[in-house]
Computed example of a mutant assay.
Amino acid sequence: MANHCNSTSSVTVAEVARGSHVIKIDGYLRTKELMENGKYVSSIPFSVGGHSWFITYFPNGVNTESKDYLSVFLTIDSACAGGVKATFSFALLDKNGRSVQLYSKLYPLHTFTEKGSDWGHSKFMKKTDLERSVYLSNDSFSIMCDLTVMKDICSKETTQKQFVVVPPSDLHQHLGDLLLKNMDGTDVTFNVGQDIFSAHKCILAARSSVFRAEFFGVMSAKARRTIKIEDIEAGVFRALLHFIYTDSLPETAQNIVMAQHLVVAADRYNVGRLKLICEEKLSKHIDSNMVATTLALAEQHSCYGLKEACFEFLASRSNLERMMASDDYEHLKISCPSVLMELVARFLPQQEK
């Protein structure tokens, strides 16, 4: 018999917020020696679904029963009147930033009732297993937390029965699993420095006109299964693939330097949305030390919005003078003389031109 309920109001999980955070443990052995059972280190706070969270890591277990294990917990760090519902997972990462299936644990829906409440795994992984594994490299390792926060949206009062609730789209998660976990059906391999990445031609071609031309164009070599990438760093290429499969950037690729590199990669492979995301990030972090480099990057890769943001910053005479006194100004003069002429025409008084 089907189960249903009558109600004078309906509540539907209409919104979710997703995010991920990586905690990297440097100096594993020293941390294990210094910290007693029940003691922990915590990650920096991160925000998902309008709430602040952090990860706690217990190198010698959270209690006496788990003293031979690593323990990891997710803690809510903000007020949560009425409780916050969330699902999450912890996963050990390999050297390429991919989840290790054997040490990946998914947690069912849990309600965090108050600030400081936590949930996790007291026996996430045996210490001896980590110490014998390849995942402990240079005395460090990383654990990623994928977090989905539920937001209940109350509709107006109604007496209609609710039989079906449609969940939010999880297409990006399934495609991400193809890249990061099982890699079923991969048909092309990229050699990038010392790293190797397996991928699917059809997905790459659907997201990038450059890959489409390379794999399926008139001059394509369809039987070609291995491609060597010479001029992109492995970490940048990994972030590019992650975006192509999931339409999002990993937490480990959110810094300004990575955004600069990804502008170049996104322009090269014509991944327009990624390029704009990185442009937006860079436009919000312009200062006198980096504006010359950013302006050269914007000019060389046709980032018109970023270029205008740089010009707006340089409209201030003091900012312009500090930029012209920087070491990167010489690079701008040599690499982009046309943008320098435009800068002069816009901002320098007639007698100085």
Results as ranks from 00 to 15, higher is better:
His4Leu: 15
Ser7Phe: 08
Thr8Gln: 14
Ser10Asn: 14
Thr12Phe: 04
Ala14Arg: 08
Glu33Tyr: 10
Tyr40Ser: 14
Ser42Thr: 11
Pro45Gln: 09
Pro45Thr: 10
His51Asp: 06
His51Phe: 07
Trp53Lys: 04
Tyr57Ser: 04
Gly61Val: 01
Asn63Val: 00
Asp77Pro: 01
Lys85Ser: 12
Asp94Leu: 03
Lys95His: 13
Asn96Leu: 15
Val100Ser: 08
Leu102Asn: 10
Tyr103His: 15
Tyr103Ile: 12
Tyr107Gln: 12
Pro108Ala: 03
His110Pro: 00
Lys127Ser: 09
Glu131Cys: 10
Glu131Tyr: 06
Leu136Cys: 09
Ser137Met: 13
Cys145Ser: 06
Cys145Glu: 05
Leu147Lys: 03
Asp152Thr: 10
Glu157Gln: 11
Gln160Cys: 13
Gln162Ser: 13
Pro168Asp: 02
Ser169Trp: 01
Asn182Leu: 08
Asp184Pro: 06
Asp187Asn: 06
Thr189Asn: 03
His200Pro: 02
His200Asp: 05
Lys201Ile: 02
Arg207Leu: 07
Phe211Ser: 08
Ala223Glu: 15
Lys228His: 12
Ile229Tyr: 09
Glu230Trp: 02
Ala239His: 03
His242Asn: 09
Ser248Glu: 12
Gln260Arg: 13
Val263Thr: 10
Ala266His: 10
Lys275Pro: 08
Leu276Gly: 02
Ala292Arg: 01
Thr293Pro: 04
Leu314Val: 04
Ala315Pro: 00
Asn319Cys: 07
Arg322Ala: 14
Ser326Ile: 00
Asp328Gly: 14
Val339Lys: 04
Val339Asn: 10
Arg346Met: 04
